[in-house]
Each structure stands twice: as structure tokens, then as C-alpha cells.
Design a protein around this nucleic acid. Structure first.
Lengths: 165, 165
DNA sequence: ATTTACAGCACCATTCTGGTCCGATATGGT
DNA sequence: ACCATATCGGACCAGAATGGTGCTGTAAAT
């Protein structure tokens, strides 16, 4: 269905939770799970991964917990996705050459790389700080595009297909 | 890994193949599978789905096959993805309200909807005609953004994390 | 009537995902 | 020193989704 995994979804919610806490004392996994209403073992697992990858700082022992490793302004959605989900690659050939055996035949490779870069940039342009703010977007060409989209709700009408799962 | 399914990937390649054939006589599943070097039963299944959803016109019997239902300029990548993969929804709450039980707690819902719209629009702005063309992009604010991205290869340097699978 | 080729559907193996659990280790407090 | 608290690093598991196959039926052309 072209969606992020729950792991990533939860992970970003947890990061946002950490970013929106006023003080910077570490929060432990149980507290975070409770305040986000997510399954505790799952939360624990995700936090571990985020710490291992350097997006969170972990503190062991009593009074331990997790803190953001950087300022919310310096943590992009793209990076969180990459850490939890792996690299953004809509198709195999979207990253680079010689990953797909059909290269010589397939004419669609290069356009995919462009599309991929657009999506990645859209995600890189939103930071954790934007997520916990009311009006979410600020800088960059794509942010401008976003605002334009918000103004005109349906620029090119496309019928919603009668798709059944 | 945040990627499209093979079904969608193949489907778009097949659509592109049909868009790039000079004459508009129908191509059958076997021919398409051979020229794209993809497993024939899989190709057949995907073409059926595309025809059922109205993106292709099927012709039965001998000399039958598949044709594009519309001009390549009128078939967007977003639509092909939606037909083959389902609606674009990066998270559960990205579409609308009351799909997620955490709404009252979660502060991240609205930003996700915006991000989702950006991604969807990026995909809606590229048509099948663009995919089979050399210089792929034309109109719209996002297309401009894409060209800008192409000019400056790495606008905001982000370290590539030492991620292992 | 025969051949060609799509339509629909059931089926299967493998992988991925969401979720759980446990022993080890580090820290703070008593 | 000891204990409670928490993270760390695994293994582990059930169920769903994915990629891929096969078969029967039906429409069209010769």
C-alpha cells in the first residue's frame, strides 16, 4: 500500500514526543510507551535502534532513559526514515546503476531516480522541529510547493479509482 | 525499505513499454513479458489488473493484447501506483481523521498529511509521457523544484548513516 | 471449429512485519 | 555492598503480505 512500516511510524512519533518535552531529562521506554499509547516492548525495540544509529542518546541504569542526540531542527524526517526503514528507494534502480538486470532494456530507470530524489528531498526538508510545531514548514523550494498545494486543494482532478483490496 | 512492490514496478515498466511502441496495435502479454524480460505469468497478472482498473484496454482473441486506455500525457505515475498498490498513505493517519486510535495524543498527524500530499503530488506531476522521454519533466511547481535539485546535486548534506541490514 | 489470448481465481513458498521475552550490563540510591 | 531500575542485544514467533504459478473459462479472429 506504499506506506511506512509501523516501526518507522512509531519511531517518528516517539522522536516527536521527545522533542516536545520541555525539559531535557531522559525519558525511559515505559514512560514513552505510556504517553504515546504504544506497546511497550515494541517501543523499547525502536528506541534501541534509534540509539544504536545515533539519533538518540541512551542512559542506562536507574534514572536512565533516552534523549535526542541533536536539536530537533537538525533531525530530518528523511534521516529518521532511513535509520528505521533503510534507504529511500522507490524501485531497485532508483538509487544507482547496476542494481537491476534489466538496465539495458528499461527506459524508465533515470526518471525513477529523479522521482526518488524529489521524494527524498521532500522528506529531508521537514525536520522534527517542524513536526512538533503548529505551522509545519519553512524553508526551501519544496516547502514553497507544499504551501501552494495547500492553497489549491486539487490541482489536477483525478478520479479516485474503485479499488478493492 | 520504503519501496514500491515489484508488481507496481513491473506495471509501470510495462505501461512505459506500451507508451513507447510506435504503432498503436495491441501487444499481448507474452510479447510484453519477453521484451521487458519479466516472468510471463506475473506480467499477465499485472496487465489484467491494469485493464480491470481502466488504465489499459484489453482485446481478446487472436491478434488481441493490451493498449493504453489514454494518452501517455494523461496517465500519471501517481495513478498507476494507486491502481496497483492502493492509495498513497505513508502512515495510517496521513489520509484523514479517525483512522488512528491515537489521534488525541499524537501531535504528528497533521504534518504527516502535508508530507503525504507533497509526495503524492510529486508522483502526480510525472506522466507516462515523461517516463519515456529523455528529459523527463515539464510543468508545475514541483517539476521546477525537481530541476533545481538536479542542478545542485546535494543541497543539504546529510551524512549517510552506517546502516547495516 | 480451432486457435489465440485475456479473465478470474485459487494456490503456494518465502519474506517481512509486528510483537514478545529473556539474560546481561550499567547506573543511582540506600 | 547491594538492590532496584533501565537499557542492550539477542532470539523468537505468529500472521500477513509479496512474488510467483497454474488452471479453467470465455471472447475474438481465421
Amino acid at each position: 500500500m506504499f506506506r511506512l512500516s509501523k516501526t518507522t511510524d512509531y519511531g517518528i512519533v516517539l522522536m516527536a514526543q521527545l522533542a516536545s518535552t520541555p525539559d531535557r531529562s531522559p525519558l525511559n521506554a515505559r514512560e514513552l510507551a505510556a504517553s504515546a499509547d504504544l506497546p511497550a516492548p515494541m517501543v523499547s525495540k525502536i528506541l534501541k535502534a534509534l540509539a544504536r544509529e545515533g539519533l538518540l542518546i541512551s542512559q542506562r541504569g536507574s534514572k536512565g532513559g533516552y534523549q535526542l542526540a541533536r536539536l530537533p531542527e537538525e533531525l530530518s524526517v528523511s534521516e529518521m526514515i532511513r535509520v528505521l526503514e533503510g534507504p529511500v528507494a522507490l524501485t531497485d534502480c532508483a538509487i544507482g546503476p547496476t542494481l537491476c538486470s534489466h538496465e539495458s532494456l528499461c527506459a524508465v530507470r533515470e526518471p525513477w531516480q529523479v522521482i526518488n530524489r524529489v521524494v527524498e528531498r521532500a522528506l529531508a526538508d521537514v525536520t522534527l522541529a517542524d513536526l512538533v510545531r503548529q505551522r509545519p514548514l519553512r524553508r526551501g523550494a519544496l516547502a514553497e510547493g507544499i504551501l501552494q498545494i495547500e492553497r489549491r486543494p486539487e490541482p489536477r482532478p483525478e478520479r479516485s479509482p474503485t479499488h478493492v483490496d
